[in-house]
Design a protein around this nucleic acid. Structure first.
Lengths: 264, 264
DNA sequence: CATCCTTATTGATCCAGATTATAAAAATGA
DNA sequence: TCATTTTTATAATCTGGATCAATAAGGATG
């Protein structure tokens, strides 16, 4: 893999509060279960290194075996597949707080490649180490399941996008999805965000040609639903946009751990 | 929900061997981890009832909260979403051995509906009970993650189908996927299987119109790749079909439990 | 500051696949 | 058993979005 690895420096500097808030994976995990300080420590113990990956480098290559999990701290990536005829389909966009290697590492061989869309920093964890953690702290296995389910739910919406939504609807849906996922880890304002993807990437995600995606984007602007300056996207009429896109946010409830223990 | 429930009769009749082989969920779980007799028993303890659902009944309704897991023993279903304009997108087909409620129950409210495509029998398990089981036996939490990852991998292929594959390629891919998933739980011959879905369902899965799906099917037959009599599909030229579809089987490796314990 | 490369924008043509319509065959159920 | 509904099959028309092409506008790089 094209990464520069450096040993995991578990800096204990910085107030502890910051750690809970600044690590996007912790933010997402804590939406699902309560995490204690010991939990945090055993999670850290399992991280073997922190790495940086440069823009345009592949994080994962299709067809290769890979038994690592990458927790994305910063930066963006795209999971994609190249077809024989040269076409590319982007399966999903990877944002901070996501885990790369989730479907991939669980299979014999990765089913898709993942390319860094910006410079990234991520934490590496061996699959066996994480499985070990799950055995000691079943909580983490459940978090993994829940995150996988969230991801599946996003994939499902993507299938609907590409299968039955019109181009405008698809694009509106993509923008809303990205916005809500960024917001989940504190990377978006209420009505605006920085879109880290080019029109080409979005067209490859939505199964459209670049010119048509461009036209569709222009259409959304003309209708006054969004505004764009540079990378900044502003949502001008969220209600209309959501209606157009058939958008409903994907939010998972908490893992019913205490209830389970009560039953137990 | 439109099901007729009867209390779970844990019949201990029949040789034990049969149970391992006849329950499709056990078959799939055992592809991932070793299961002991006590494991089997604690799994059973968590099943609260067995139910039958009639053809065309909805198992899950979009937008409703639902905190049950359904382990499919027999029969087929389709996970779908209806759009405002009346179009339907089928997100995936549910086969014996699958768990329904996986993304659904983990979210606040189900994101799609699931309709029974044939009469079905399934086992019901409360989400909290299963979470409890995972706490006592972390193994099951991992199985859940792995199954979710497999499902996500299938969804990813489906996105590629609908986004960038041509109609023939899509259809070829769908047929191969169904065949391999059926084979996984012992419901298909090496080169033939019973297709439980109508052309309308397949067109709704692949984002095509019914007439065009029909033509495409005719095309595959004309090319001598498959043969169809009634519901029976025969794969005449598997190599060519796989090439056409860019098909690569999704098979997950085993969960590295022993390795994890060694590290531990 | 000049050049190169990536990204965005716009226009013209054309075809794959949707849509609509109709009929035959098969499954369902009363 | 026959009537009704589903499911398959096929043909004719029409259109949305791909494709091809060309340009403009940024951004990076030396």
């Amino acid at each position: 893999m094209n990464v520069s690895v450096r040993p995991s420096t578990t800096r204990v500097s910085g107030a502890l509060k910051d750690i809970w808030r600044s690590d996007p994976f912790l933010i997402r995990a804590r939406q699902l279960v309560d995490l204690t300080l010991p939990d945090l420590q055993s999670l850290r113990a399992v991280i073997e290194a922190e790495a940086t990956v440069k823009r345009r480098r592949d994080l994962v290559l299709e067809g290769y075996e890979c038994s690592k999990l990458y927790f994305i701290k910063e930066g963006f990536a795209a999971r994609y597949k190249l077809l024989r005829n040269g076409k590319r389909q982007i399966v999903n966009f990877v944002l901070p707080g996501d885990i790369v290697g989730m479907p991939g590492s669980f299979l014999d061989r990765a089913a898709n490649s993942v390319i860094a869309v910006s410079d990234m920093t991520l934490q590496i964890c061996a699959l066996e180490a994480f499985v070990g953690l799950c055995c000691r702290q079943p909580k983490f296995g459940l978090v993994l399941s829940w995150l996988a389910a969230q991801e599946a739910a996003h994939y499902a919406e993507h299938i609907i996008d590409v299968g039955r939504r019109t181009p405008v609807e698809r694009l509106a849906h993509l923008l809303l999805e990205i916005h809500s996922r960024l917001a989940l880890v504190g990377l978006a304002d209420e009505f605006a965000f920085n879109l880290p993807f080019t029109q080409e990437m979005m067209s490859d995600a939505l199964g459209l040609s670049v010119p048509h995606l461009n036209r569709t984007l222009a259409h959304l602007r003309a209708e006054g639903l969004i505004a764009i300056n540079g990378r900044r996207v502003e949502i001008l009429d969220r209600k209309a946009l959501e209606l157009l896109a058939h958008f409903q946010p994907i939010q998972s409830g908490r893992i019913p751990l205490s209830e389970a223990l009560a039953v137990n």
